[in-house]
Design a binder for these strands. Structure first.
Length: 480
RNA sequence: UCCUGCUUAGCUCAGUUGGUUAGAGCAUCUGACUGUUAAUCAGAGGGUCGCUGGUUCAAGUCCAGCAGCAGGAGCCA
């Protein structure tokens, strides 16, 4: 009979009037042999349980240790203390699970570092920071579905295992049941994938986009939201080997429609979190401010986390073309004083992180949508513009995070697409099904990919992507 | 993968020009106190100084290799 419990979040919303309630949760602290701060994950706020002196056996009190799990019944009364409006005056305390204080790895008074908490990721949800981060993450994920559902998009589950490595979005993880020792070989000595489970070489997906395009040419508007895998040896605060990506794809849609949707979408999910996770965001804002106190003045954020999110909601994203961005960079004092590590050589160059950061953080100081990149530095499926030099690509750059969205209008003209694939050595025969959509009822269409964890980073202010996913997979790390 | 830095108690960190028995705060344990808010006070226990090798009379300290972690870069979302 656990369903009689009230969640702490609901409980704290009540007016104390001697109501009898039962709560269950984990001990955050036990002060003065009398006051238990109990948390159940519904909110970072704890319910203070008062175990009146002499009312409970010494051997029960001794077992009330950090992170022990309790079932507590009692009545709620106005608190005599200052830190909270109500107390739960306990009539019964049941220890559901002991927690050996000598061995439990997180003692909150030690102010454990984020790095340390990654080593005990199975318990880090029991801290305020990760409680807030993962409740916000949930809201963002939920609002993604709500946003698209309300617009009539169809949610597609694109395959996790794929046979095409055609997009070239990065190194892939191989999926196989062949034995490591003595795999079957062909006559020329290479591995014979005909004998593998799928009868061909298969990998974990690096993007659901190509399959998404197939669905968009029937449903009109679709989106995917699923795990994505990149076997790159990237060791940064914004890369994971396993991450979640949202990829809408819209038929009858051009680059401008695409950018409009992306901006509306980002603002929508931020607004949703602001409306539904205010307390958690305020906590995270304070956490970030405290963390930045250690930094020199010029490295601190100009705005608080909340102010930054409000600013994003209330201002249009800056839109400019790649060509305009190069001009701004070239004319910038930063460049003239040769302060870029990679000099701005001119049109055609790929933008380095430092260039993107300059545009977003120094020049415009808000999210930027960059469009119409040189075709040489972009993927084969992007629609060629009439100038013959650029493609209808779009990247959205966010302050502090960098590229958060990458998208484009897709090349819907079969001849142009085939020509580009040939130029870029993309095997057209493997992608016959993709090309078929251009043969039968092709339509102008567009879409983008949004890295979910980077979005969570942006909203929570967490600097390291490993701290916004429950169990991060990075090179040399997959413990949990 | 490249560059830089770090690795000393359960956690966060000091540790001088190489020198005898390696320190602190917090946590933990024991006791006291009891309307606390990261409770407070007193005491106690707790270390193969990341690993391997080298230099030296002597290495936590110097050198080399390896590993892990962090930050930056590249690749990207």
């Amino acid at each position: 009979m656990f369903n009689k419990r009230i969640k702490v979040k609901e409980l704290l919303a009540l007016e104390p009037n001697n109501q009898e309630v039962t709560v269950m949760g984990w001990v955050r602290s036990f002060r003065n042999n009398q006051f238990i701060a109990l948390n159940d994950g519904s909110t970072n706020n704890n319910i203070q349980i008062v175990a009146e002196l002499g009312r409970f056996d010494e051997d029960i009190l001794k077992r009330i240790t950090t992170s022990a799990s309790l079932k507590v019944s009692g009545v709620i009364v106005s608190s005599l203390g200052k830190g909270q409006k109500m107390d739960l005056k306990a009539t019964s305390i049941e220890i559901l699970g002991d927690s050996d204080a000598e061995k439990y790895p997180i003692q909150l008074r030690n102010r454990p570092t984020l790095e340390y908490l990654r080593e005990v990721a199975h318990f880090r949800f029991r801290t305020n920071t990760f409680g807030a981060v993962f409740r916000v993450r949930h809201s963002l994920a939920f609002s993604v579905h709500k946003f698209f559902n309300d617009k009539g998009f169809v949610y597609m589950h694109t395959p996790i295992i794929t046979a095409s490595d055609a997009e070239g979005a990065g190194e892939m993880f191989r999926v196989t049941t062949l034995p490591f020792e003595n795999p079957p070989k062909t006559e020329d000595g290479s591995i014979n994938f005909k004998e593998d489970f799928f009868g061909r070489n298969t990998n974990l997906t690096v993007s659901g986009q190509l399959e998404g395009e197939l669905a968009a040419t029937a449903f009109g508007d679709i989106y995917t939201f699923g795990p994505t895998f990149r076997a790159e040896n990237s060791n940064t605060a914004r890369h994971l080997a396993e991450f979640w990506m949202i990829e809408p794809e819209m038929a009858f849609c051009d680059l401008e429609d695409n950018a409009n949707l992306a901006e509306e979408f980002i603002k929508y999910i931020i607004k949703y979190a602001m409306d539904n996770n205010r307390e958690d965001l305020e906590f995270l804002a304070q956490r970030l401010a405290d963390e930045e106190k250690q930094l020199p003045q010029d490295k601190r954020s100009e705005m608080s986390l909340i102010e930054k999110l409000e600013f994003v909601l209330n201002n249009n994203f800056e839109r400019l073309t790649y060509t305009e961005a190069i001009d701004i960079l070239k004319e910038s004092n930063h460049n003239k004083k040769k302060k870029f590590q990679y000099p701005v050589t001119g049109w055609g160059m790929d933008l380095q992180s430092e260039h993107e950061r300059y545009l977003v953080e120094k020049h415009f100081k808000k999210p930027v949508i960059l469009t119409n990149y040189p075709k040489e530095i972009k993927a084969f499926y992007m629609r060629q513009n009439d100038d013959g030099k650029t493609v209808a690509a779009m990247d959205i750059l966010a302050p502090g995070i960098g590229e958060i969205v990458g998208g484009s209008q897709r090349e819907e003209r079969l001849d142009k697409l085939e020509q580009r694939m040939k130029e870029m050595n993309v095997p057209a025969d493997q992608l016959w099904w993709y090309l078929d959509t251009r043969r039968f009822g092709t339509v102008p269409h567009a879409g983008f990919g949004l890295g979910f964890e980077r979005m969570v980073q942006f909203v929570t202010g967490m600097n390291n992507i490993r701290d916004v996913i429950a169990f991060p997979r990075t090179p040399k790390s997959a413990e949990f």
